[in-house]
Each structure stands twice: as structure tokens, then as C-alpha cells.
């Protein structure tokens, strides 16, 4: 195969992995927004907590846990952290304006990041797994196994979430709450409980993203900041609260970013993703997949 084609395909695969990663982060953020109308600026920091959890589990003295078990443990830990945050910080202010709630999540973000800084310093921590170095080659195209795992996992999670929302009691309630909160309160759905469960699920998804993706990067206290913003951009582009829209917007963002940094400029890749975001906001205020709502 000509080298240009190989490089192009590799860029596409990189873009898809990046997109899958963003999508995983975005899914959780979008779920919380849909159900609780909460803009969670601490979402990326929960991802960061997942990263450090992974780091700790990989470096347990004496025992080597199998990677799948580690992934599960990271998800459980982050879900519990999310649950704790929801109980202590978010739950008491569930009836306040979205502004106050958003500022509170920024407060959580400040606390988590500085806690990580104090506990682990700002040095990047490496979290290699057996898969992150493994590379498979198909017709000259080289892909790391870790990337493939992410792609497969995200697609699986997306389908699982669809099933969950359509076929389980809790899932149906989540969908109902995100469509009409007032009505749900009237019919007697326990909205705060649904919000709590959603927060835990969403945090668990961030943990999953950390367990799968950190082996390709490195773990740092600030690793979540820009990520939260990119994911929020995807949530808005997808049409606030529309989970599927946000999911595809995240993939789009990943592809654009990978192709731009591959062919044009690595330094300006974030300028392009945020520039694109702001530009689309101006042209389509309701987002790419959103509908304009009336009163």
C-alpha cells in the first residue's frame, strides 16, 4: 500500500480512538446534564481520579492483578467517588440554579486537582499495560492493541447504555426525567434518586475511560481540565442533553483533531477544536443535532 494511504488510515484510526475516548467522557457528562440539568466541570477530574487509581493498582507491591480486573476496580472506585460527591456536594443544592451548581462542580474540580497535586506531585505518572506496547499490523497499518480495546469498549458501552435506557426500570426513569422533569415529579418518580444513580454511572464511565486511555498517555493532576471542556463542547454541539448527538459530536471532534494535527499543525490542534466549537455555536445556536425549543 502506498505510504500516504497508510498514514491517512492511521490518522483516521487515531481520530476514531480519540473520538471514542471523547465519546466515553461525553456520554457521562451528557447523561448528567440530561437528567439533572447539571454542568459538571469536575467530570474530567473524576477521570483523573480514575487515572491515579489505575496507577496505584498497577503498582501494588507484591501482587499483579490482571488488567480486566483492574479496569473493573477503577470503574467501581470512580463510581463510588462520584456517589460521594453527589451525596455531599450536589444533592443538597439540587434545587438551586444551574449557575450555583456549576460553580460548585468547579469547586470540586479545584479540590480534586490540588489534592492530587499534594498526594502525587505534578510529575506525570506512566501507567503502561501489557496491551499498550502490543502492536498488530494489518497490511502495513500498525495499531496498538490498547486503541482497539478502546474502540470496541466504547461501541459496546454505547449499545449497552441504549439497552439500559430502553429496558430497565431505572433506565426508563432516567430517560423520562431528562425529557420532562416536572411531569416526573408529579407522577412520583424519585428524581433525586435517579440523579444520584446517573451521577454514579457517569463517574464510572469516566473511570472506564481513564482505565482504558491512560496507558496511552500519562497521569497528571491536570489531565482532566481541558478534557472536561472538550467534552462539554461535544455535549453542546450534540444539542444539550441529547446523548446520541453528543456521542457523535465527540467522534467528530476526535477525527477533526487527529486529522488536523496530523496534516496541518500539532500546536494549533486545540485551537481548531475549540474554534470549530465556537463557530458552530454561532451558526447553529441549538447545536448540530439539537432542535430549537420554544418557550
Amino acid at each position: 500500500m502506498p505510504i500516504e494511504v497508510v498514514i491517512f488510515i492511521e490518522h483516521i484510526i487515531n481520530g476514531l480512538t480519540l473520538g471514542a475516548f471523547y465519546a466515553l467522557i461525553t456520554l457521562g457528562l451528557s447523561l448528567i446534564f440530561g437528567v439533572a440539568r447539571l454542568v459538571n466541570f469536575a467530570h474530567g477530574d473524576i477521570f483523573m481520579v480514575g487515572g491515579y487509581t489505575l496507577f496505584l493498582l498497577l503498582n501494588l507491591s507484591g501482587i499483579t492483578l490482571p488488567y480486566p480486573l483492574i479496569v473493573v476496580l477503577v470503574v467501581v472506585v470512580t463510581a463510588l467517588v462520584g456517589l460521594l460527591i453527589e451525596r455531599v456536594v450536589i444533592h443538597p443544592i439540587l434545587n438551586r440554579s444551574w449557575r450555583v451548581q456549576a460553580v460548585a462542580t468547579l469547586g470540586i474540580s479545584i479540590v480534586l486537582q490540588n489534592l492530587a497535586l499534594i498526594l502525587f506531585t505534578s510529575d506525570p505518572k506512566q501507567t503502561p499495560t501489557i496491551y499498550s506496547r502490543q502492536i498488530i499490523e494489518i497490511m502495513d497499518i500498525r495499531i496498538s492493541v490498547q486503541r482497539l480495546i478502546i474502540l470496541v469498549a466504547v461501541i459496546f458501552i454505547f449499545l449497552a447504555l441504549q439497552w439500559f435506557v430502553k429496558h430497565t426500570q431505572t433506565g426508563k426513569a432516567m430517560r423520562a426525567v431528562s425529557q420532562n422533569r416536572e411531569m416526573c415529579q408529579i407522577v412520583g418518580i424519585d428524581v433525586p434518586r435517579i440523579a444520584m444513580i446517573t451521577f454514579a454511572i457517569s463517574s464510572g464511565l469516566a473511570g472506564l475511560a481513564a482505565a482504558l486511555m491512560s496507558p496511552l498517555f500519562s497521569v497528571m493532576p491536570t489531565m482532566g481540565s481541558l478534557l472536561t471542556l472538550k467534552a462539554l463542547a461535544a455535549v453542546i454541539l450534540g444539542g444539550l442533553g441529547q446523548v446520541n448527538g453528543a456521542f457523535f459530536a465527540a467522534f467528530l471532534l476526535g477525527l477533526v483533531e487527529a486529522l488536523f494535527s496530523g496534516y496541518v499543525s500539532y500546536a494549533y490542534r486545540d485551537v481548531v477544536s475549540f474554534g470549530l466549537f465556537v463557530l458552530i455555536l454561532f451558526v447553529r445556536p441549538q447545536g448540530l443535532f439539537g432542535r430549537r425549543v420554544g418557550l
Binding site: V39, W98, R99, A102, L226, L229, L232, A233, I236, L240, D270, V271, F274, G275, F277, V278, L281, P285, G287
Partner: peptide
């Protein structure tokens, strides 16, 4: 754009 988009959009502008 909506209030939420405004907050995040302006933050995006700051990053840019």
C-alpha cells in the same frame, strides 16, 4: 445561545 452554552462557549474562547 442558551445560558449554559454561553458560559462554556466563552470559556472556549478563553482557551482559544
Amino acid at each position: 445561545i442558551s445560558e449554559v452554552s454561553f458560559a462554556i462557549g466563552t470559556l472556549g474562547a478563553l482557551i482559544i
